[in-house]
Design a protein around this nucleic acid. Structure first.
Lengths: 310, 310
DNA sequence: TGCATAACCTGACTTTAGTCAGGCATCATG
DNA sequence: CATGATGCCTGACTAAAGTCAGGTTATGCA
């Protein structure tokens, strides 16, 4: 039963939102409306594009505009066009003025103070224990914030992942990575019903991807599994694998396979521990040294939405 | 330097207020104003006195009244006089109606769902790790939320602690505890400048106490150190001791002592580990078996009691 | 070139949240 | 039984937060 796990999460939520949530706002505000303070903080000493800030804070466009005007009137920020050469003339960039920067520094200081006010009443030993437990909670919360969902391989975020993937493997393969030598995967093969491309995001930032090709009559094939190193070790790869398998299984496939390079040792370990078994070469991929396969169990419940192929 | 400790707390604050704080509010609200939802939740299925709720949520009296009226108009709660026999005619009790109870159950369910939505993406092993880390964080945050401050020994909260103290020792001493046999401590002896009474509170609930008598010409004397078992093991006793010592030291005392019963073994261990050394009997307290003393270091100059490292 | 669209702004609004001063019963106390 | 305190309520207010429906300008694309 998960009820005791759920209960501890709830107790945690309660204590923490009380202590951290409430104080955090209070420390942040400094007489100024909270929304303004947050905005100021989010712009940061290096400035930021208005659209980016809006996305991060999830604000209404009109509301944000008004908040910026207020900060501008207070002489804390300036909003101007994107100075970059060839920049988009529509996007505007918010930057802190001298006194805005001072204010930001103050907020930064207060944030330190808040943190310290939590640690201060504790002994050195307990401080240590608290911070390690916090780090653990934070890591695992981040892990649970990663969302995996289907996405077009044309999507700019998908493109970014695929570029990062190519860069990564180029670095790890013995002889670099030349796409021309590798068996190409066309986008159409990763678009339903031929296959699917899954994107992993953390706060809508892309942090991983994976795809599966569903070619009738042959096992499903996994391609392009990549995880950003910012979230490595949090089980994202494993989840991605699971979702891809589930996708294939739901559509009637009973086996799934993949090829991989001998240098990707963690990936290989992950495949093995996820139930993949090494098989004979089944393709002519130039960069592959190992081939793996896993039998898929038919999905549990009703929803038999597929294809009885294979 | 504690900068890395502070940095982890800050990272934690950020992640947690984002993930837990924001979602918690959203889950709670359900279309209704958040304040009303919170109030409804706080009243709970068993009802609650208006004053108690106000204290817990820290709301303005007028504001709370209005919120209650709104909930009443929505048919979710009823506010009536205290039904209890001989109850105070001024205090009013809020109780949930049938549909208020349904709403509360719904909130309870959503709270479970929120918790589960955090656990769900994780593997069983990570769920386990997350919940234990959360429990650790929560315990230590609670520890850091305990506030210790001077208080009159007449204060009802102080009285409650002293009663609890008497109850505790009566249970632990070999032959019970008869105040008449014990050397009495008069309240005046615990009021500055003759001494001080310190109260430990958690969310303004009393959870511990301690006192020191400052009799000129003799060492300071610690009395009545007690900690509620809800917060035992969190270092509250140790902090209390430290504050009492600091109080005496700041006023020029260079030694502090206390007596204790042989059955209070954890207390004795704490005194030893806090630097107290056993000495000869110095009083005729009926229930005492051990006497301890500690030399006090003169306080650091100036009022800089900020970030005392270590 | 024209047209849909994106990024941002403005004005006009509503709802929430919260404060403050005073009022009216009830209670505790001398 | 007068007096002040306590617990709750009402009215009158303010500020903050957020929404919505247009507008303006710049871009991307056929």
């Amino acid at each position: 039963m998960h009820s005791d796990l759920v209960a501890s999460v709830r107790r945690f939520n309660r204590t923490v939102t009380q202590r951290v949530g409430a104080l955090d706002d209070e420390y942040m505000a400094r007489g100024r409306p909270l929304a303004q303070a947050r905005l100021l903080w989010e712009i940061g000493p290096d400035g930021a594009e208005v659209a980016a800030v809006r996305a991060r804070l999830g604000l209404d466009s009109g509301y944000l505009s008004r908040l910026l005007r207020n900060l501008e009137n207070d002489g804390l920020v300036t909003v101007g066009p994107d100075d970059q050469l060839g920049g988009d003339g529509r996007v505007r960039v918010a930057a802190l003025t001298e006194s805005g920067r001072a204010e930001w520094t103050e907020l930064d200081k207060r944030s330190d103070e808040l943190a310290w006010s939590i640690l201060e009443p504790l002994t050195a030993q307990r401080r240590q224990r608290l911070t390690s437990a916090m780090a653990e909670v934070e890591r695992l919360l981040v892990a649970s914030m990663v969302v995996i969902e289907p996405c077009s391989p044309n999507d700019p975020r998908a493109r970014a992942c695929l570029r990062a993937y190519a860069r990564d493997v180029a670095r790890r393969f013995d002889d670099g990575f030349d796409p021309a030598l590798s068996t190409p995967v066309r986008d159409e093969q990763l678009i339903p019903p031929a296959g699917v491309f899954l994107l992993a995001t953390l706060n809508s930032e892309p942090v991983g991807c994976g795809a599966v090709k569903l070619h009738p009559g042959t096992p499903a094939e996994i391609k392009r599994v990549w995880v950003a190193d910012t979230v490595r070790g949090l089980g994202v790869g494993r989840r991605m694998l699971g979702e891809l398998e589930e996708y294939a299984a739901e559509r009637g496939w009973t086996a799934i396979r993949l090829d991989t390079n001998r240098n990707l040792t963690e990936a290989i370990a992950m495949y093995r521990s996820a139930g993949y078994r090494e098989i004979e070469r089944y393709n002519t991929e130039h960069y592959a040294h190992h081939w793996f396969e896993k039998r898929l169990r038919p999905p549990r419940t009703s929803g038999s939405r597929g294809h009885s192929d294979n």
